[in-house]
Simulated assay, not measured.
Amino acid sequence: MLGMLTGLWRYRGFILSSIRNEFITRFSRSRLGGLWMIIHPLAQVAIYALILSNILAAKLPGIDNKYAYALYLMAGSLAWTLFSEIISRFLSLFIDQGNLMKKISFPRITLPVIVVGSCLLNNALLFVAILIVFALLGQSPNLQMLWLVPLTLSVVAIAVGLGLILGVLNVFVRDIGQVVPIVLQIWFWFTPIVYPVSIIPDYLKGTLEYNPMFSIVSAYHSVMVYKESPDLHQVLITLAIAVALMLLGLFMFRRAVPEMVDSL
């Protein structure tokens, strides 16, 4: 672990320049540039809001805002977008960078760190856009939003842990790359992002405890929509799971790097 941290520090310039170059290259020929990173998730929120708001708006108790459902959607989407983007990019990261890993000697851990940095930049821009939309809809920022710092770190830790495990496995078993997008779709609908927890039957609510994204998304809703502190007990449990997953992912990545280079 110390060797990874040392390598990251020595190659910090490479990491920062790679994140910047990726951002510039990604939108170099686009008239709207980085705005597309904001437009896509907000457009998805708008579609869900238009289709489902009339059905679910009356079932969001405790929110004194006629745009309650749109606020609820945006808060949950902020967490899920970061989570799914990291996992999706990690899934093919080592395959896409196979030639680089075989030809150049550098700390391989810099590759996932560059992806995380890029995803965090995207998420930060989306957060700013959501704050502006919140303000336009009459939902002012509040001090409880400071909780988003540890919550975002939890999302990153869970996504990095799962992403590294799946990305390594995908090098050796390419079917993983086909299965994971389907699993993420199912996972999305089993997480209360487009619907409130209150509409879930009581006999199914217990299953939500096994979904680590449930407590994080619920915390985002509490902080951004209800202006309340999240359930600290749930946050600590989720953070512990996140750290464990990230350590497992890093361990697996470190052990598998030499074999990955040979297989790519």
Rank of each mutant, 00 (worst) to 15 (best):
A75C: 07
S198A: 14
P212D: 04
V217I: 05
G161V: 02
F106Q: 04
I165A: 07
V217A: 00
D231T: 04
T25I: 14
H233G: 13
Q178I: 11
I176S: 01
M252T: 13
V225P: 00
Q97S: 15
A58C: 08
F106N: 03
I86L: 07
V45F: 06
Q178S: 11
N54L: 11
M145P: 12
L73E: 01
I47V: 13
M37L: 15
I241P: 11
F172H: 10
S215R: 06
A68V: 00
V45Y: 03
G206I: 10
N123E: 13
S263A: 13
S92Y: 14
C119S: 14
S263M: 13
D202S: 15
H221C: 03
S105G: 08
A46N: 05
A79T: 05
A129D: 09
L146T: 11
A157G: 08
I200S: 09
F190Q: 11
F106V: 05
T191N: 03
R254T: 09
A219Q: 01
R255Y: 11
D96P: 11
M145Y: 12
R26G: 15
R20N: 14
R255S: 07
A129F: 09
A49W: 09
T25W: 14
E228Y: 08
E22G: 14
I55A: 13
D202F: 13
R20E: 13
L239R: 13
Y220M: 01
G62L: 07
A124P: 11
G13A: 06
K205N: 08
I186T: 12
L247F: 12
D262Q: 14
V128F: 10
Y72E: 00
S118I: 10
A49R: 02
I87N: 05
Q185L: 14
Y67P: 03
G177A: 07
I38F: 12
N211T: 03
I86T: 02
G167Y: 09
K103Q: 15
T152R: 05
L35F: 15
T81W: 13
N99S: 15
L8K: 00
Y195M: 02
K59P: 08
N65A: 03
M224F: 03
K66R: 10
W80P: 00
S84L: 05
L100T: 07
I199T: 10
L245M: 05
V217E: 01
A242C: 08
I199C: 10
L204V: 02
A68K: 01
V45P: 03
V183P: 09
R174C: 12
I237D: 10
T238K: 09
L204G: 04
T238G: 09
T6G: 07
P141T: 05
L73T: 00
I15W: 06
V115P: 01
G33V: 07
A75H: 04
L136E: 09
T191M: 04
P212V: 02
F94Q: 04
R108Y: 11
I19P: 04
G3K: 13
S263K: 14
S154K: 04
I47G: 01
P201V: 06
P230T: 00
A79N: 02
I47F: 05
G76E: 04
R31M: 15
